[in-house]
């Protein structure tokens, strides 16, 4: 027990699982005890969640959002890779650094410009999402490039590689697995943005639209049920991208063996 509150203490997996289960139970009990008439009790949310999962409305809206997120992530990662790879060329370094700083721009302030530049709601949502995601992706990828072990470059030089071959070996091939890590870590950001972006063009639906609708009618039970489903899907994607990375790049999860 003492170990649980000791800095850097290592606990076994079973103890960890028991601890997590106990924390969840305590949270649910607190939620059950302190929620008043406005905040729905956990049982009510769970029941709404089960009902929601079986509705056509939820499935359709979730698919719309998922499709839009995946499309946006695909475009974003392609743009990110292009600028991140090019960032090692001095000419493009400034562009990549500018993209990184674009994190501080708010999407809300750019909606009108994007509306003028795009032809329909679908394109508007996609472009806003891509614009919102890319700076975070580029930031992550550039930090990977900056933190490359200098010995990787030195080994390339000693093998007689020129700069283009070094770029290919170290950054394109050597950091390919990191692309999945960036996707995994930043999926939450895309997921966060989608609810906001979908509120801009509600005609095509999506979980953002659904959330706005439930909020508008103070249907807090369904809002929380929907949040729960968003949370679970997020966790599934996290696991899926992690597994995909390990499957495609087996070395990414290898630890130094002590033979």
């Amino acid at each position: 027990m003492k170990k649980l509150i000791e800095p850097f203490a290592i606990i076994n997996r079973q103890t960890f699982m028991i601890m997590v289960a106990a924390q969840v139970v305590i949270t649910l009990l607190l939620w059950q005890s302190f929620s008043d008439g406005l905040i729905p009790k956990p049982g009510k949310v769970a029941s709404a969640f089960v009902t929601l999962l079986g509705t056509k409305l939820f499935i359709e809206n979730m698919l719309v959002s998922l499709l839009l997120t995946l499309k946006a992530m695909l475009y974003s990662i392609l743009i990110t890779l292009l600028f991140a790879w090019l960032s090692v060329l001095p000419f493009f370094k400034s562009v990549a650094l500018f993209i990184v700083k674009c994190r501080y721009l708010t999407l809300t302030g750019l909606i009108f410009i994007f509306t003028l530049l795009t032809k329909d709601g679908s394109e508007l949502k996609l472009s806003l999402l891509v614009f919102g995601i890319v700076p975070f992706f580029v930031t992550s990828f550039l930090s990977i490039i900056v933190n490359i072990n200098p010995q990787e470059y030195e080994l390339c030089k000693t093998l007689g590689y020129n700069n283009w071959q070094t770029l290919y070996e170290i950054i394109i091939i050597g950091k390919a697995d990191q692309v999945f890590e960036i996707l995994r870590q930043n999926f939450a950001i895309s997921w966060l943005m989608i609810t906001m972006v979908e509120g801009l063009s509600m005609s095509e639906g999506g979980i953002g639209t659904l959330l706005i609708k439930y909020n508008k009618y103070n249907d807090l039970t369904n809002v929380l049920a929907l949040q729960l489903s968003i949370f679970i899907i997020g966790l599934c994607f996290d696991y899926l991208l992690g597994s995909l990375r390990h499957w495609l790049f087996p070395y990414s999860h290898l630890k130094t063996a002590t033979k």
């Binding site: 072990n149 010995q151 990787e152 030195e154 080994l155 030089k157 000693t158 093998l159 007689g160 590689y161 070996e169 091939i173 050597g174 390919a176 697995d177 790049f249 070395y251």
Partner: peptide
């Protein structure tokens, strides 16, 4: 750089290449 064979102190190798692939590169 490249004229000499260089073996670093901690025997650095590309972590994303198998031994065979690393040897083939050389």
């Amino acid at each position: 750089a490249g004229d000499m064979g260089v073996i670093f102190q901690n025997y650095y190798l590309f972590e994303w290449r198998t031994v065979y692939q690393s040897l083939m590169l050389a």
